[in-house]
Nucleic acid binder design. Structure first.
Lengths: 111, 111
DNA sequence: CCGCATCCCACATGATACTG
DNA sequence: CAGTATCATGTGGGATGCGG
């Protein structure tokens, strides 16, 4: 039920897992399919290596993404959504739709 | 379309407007109906007055909530979702549902 | 190529006191 | 009651360099 204690907690949990500055963007890219570390880095020029690694680790711990290491030289590491992680797609879609509405509203306001 | 530039931006916009540490919780309370400043403060013991004021102002600027001041002594200020703000209900619901799933998954993991 | 370790700082947030 | 103002703090995140 909206507004009760449990509701607040689950919303907060969700934001803890997929919220923040970088995770949503990373997840957006991974919904396209498997990406290498370097690819993600190139697609997100503003993120530092440190933050990218850190955020990926956290998503991995939460079982949202898979990390596949190819033992070879040069190293190769691939990230992809887990089967479970696929469930974020719907969530990202809803968030994006709301954002789109909001964007339209903002442009209306200026007119 | 999932994964393209616009998609990322709208998701980020959404998180900017309703994300963060306090806004989701404030909004959860306001989905229950109108609240006075002091009520919100009591329902969120961990938040400071300063942060509550700040977050409420931002939500007001984004036209998510209404601020109604009763000119009287002692002062009385009521906050409520705007008609537009009602649209966050659905979003919060989806986020809560995902969080619930995730919570169940976490408890499974421990067994 | 991928990632860890270290140092460092700005800014978001907190604590506290005061006011109409 | 519902804020402001001021000062303090800590941590998220950036820059850089090293290592397998």
């Amino acid at each position: 039920m909206l507004g009760d204690q449990h509701f607040k907690e689950t919303v907060e949990l969700t934001l803890k897992v997929i919220g923040g500055k970088w995770k949503p963007v990373i997840l957006c890219h991974l919904t396209e399919g498997t990406h290498r570390f370097g690819e993600l880095k190139r697609e997100m020029p503003a993120i530092t290596q440190k933050m990218l690694t850190q955020q990926l680790r956290e998503l991995e711990e939460d079982a949202i993404i898979d990390r596949k290491v190819y033992v070879q030289v040069p190293p190769k590491v691939e990230y992809s959504l887990t089967e479970y992680g696929l469930s974020v797609k719907a969530l990202l879609n809803v968030m994006s739709q709301w954002g789109e509405q909001h964007q339209e509203r903002l442009s209306e306001q200026r007119m």
